[in-house]
Design a protein around this nucleic acid. Structure first.
Lengths: 227, 227
DNA sequence: ATATACATCTCGAGA
DNA sequence: TCTCGAGGTGTATAT
């Protein structure tokens, strides 16, 4: 990874056009060809680079010290140009391979926990299968409720209006099967946005907020922090 | 901005839990309190940091050279811990204020151009207003066509199936008004995905691909690169 | 290569 | 502060 601190102008043209005037910035060139431009201070975005290009790229560094850097995609449909006025720092560090990042608590984990405890999605629910296939993609959980009715469950960490649309599309397809024409929909999430609740209600879709700690048995369902 | 290259372990707990084993990484501490952890090489994500915390944060750097860094949000609901085995580089650079980034060609620009030339969305269209309000959000353009019919126009840079869903929701609401029960829908975009075209056709929504250069008068509508 | 959905999405505007 | 929608979204997975 090469790190350059330089006073420079930046021009990007591709999916849109941007220009940034002369200022001191950090230029980061990763070994895989990813290129990023960072500014400091509160003016710009916090965590996002001001400009960037994802690998694979072709990077041409002109001059030593660098006076100009051109980055472009193979097809040439995107171009990032750095005009350098002064290089304040330029060093390359070998960091070896990227070490694996283990994650716990993403939507996948929520789905596993709810598959093991489908009754958290609704009274008496029994799991038929996870990732129930439809012709436009898999439904997270397919369950049966008391009385043998079918229920499709869509799981989200945070459920927005888009989650309701997604489940609606699935239900539309599922109900084409006469045996499942009465299939209900349930939206299960750690957090459900107000507009999602409203749209879900209008579509006859039930909403269930679930708690990760409860699902893991770390906390009783009826206890609260204020109990 | 402080840049540290160090062999370290990283643990995050907050919206989820992550752990990364000992490896050499770049730690970036921005003046505003934003903290980022980058790996090099193709293993991890290209442009995203492996871990991060957006400002405002409290950052505690223990030891000199640093042996441990703790970053947390004010409420304490998120925590990022860096256990450092060896510091390979540690330097702070003053980069002044972040210089403004000017963007051109985003959806906003497209909307302005189409508002000034509504006939690009359809023969004889006249603009009634931009950001026409509905109870679930504003429609980009509301127009009238020859014969006084109403047309709601949704504008996207790239129109996907979601854009069709969004316009459908708006039309559903707009048509509740008896005076607008016949309101048509038009989806205008620089690029329309094939599946979006198909769904739009099924919903009776017209699609128009628009060209930024043509809208700006930089190129004639009937000329092409292959003409 | 394209489509589909997730993301600690981030970020900015508006209420 | 919260909510909502756009993003050069990026990223992974399945087709």
């Amino acid at each position: 990874m090469r790190l350059i601190v330089a006073r420079c102008e930046v021009d990007y043209s591709g999916r849109l056009i941007t220009h940034s005037p002369m200022a001191v910035r950090l230029l980061m060139i990763k070994t895989d060809g990813t290129f990023m431009v960072f500014s400091d201070g509160g003016g710009g975005p916090n965590v996002k680079p001001q400009n960037w290009m994802t690998a694979p790229t072709t990077i041409a560094v002109e001059g030593d010290p660098p006076s100009r850097i051109e980055v472009h995609k193979r097809g040439g449909e995107e171009r990032l140009e750095i005009a350098i006025d002064e290089v304040l720092f330029d060093e390359t560090h070998d960091m070896g391979e990227a070490a694996a990042l283990e994650k716990d608590g993403v939507e996948r984990d929520l789905q596993e926990l709810l598959a093991a405890a489908p009754h958290r999605c609704g009274e008496g629910f029994r799991l038929v299968r996870r990732e129930w296939p439809t012709d436009i993609g898999p439904v997270d959980l397919m369950c049966r409720e008391p009385g043998e009715g079918w229920v499709a469950v869509e799981i989200k960490r945070v459920a927005t209006i888009e989650a309701v649309e997604q489940l609606s599309r699935y239900l539309e397809r599922i109900r084409l099967d006469p045996a499942m024409s009465e299939c209900r929909g349930v939206l299960a999430a750690q957090q459900i946005k107000p507009q999602a609740s409203v749209l879900a209600a209008a579509r006859g879709i039930a909403c269930v907020e679930v708690d990760l700690a409860v699902l893991r048995g770390e906390r009783e369902p009826d206890l609260t922090l204020f109990g």
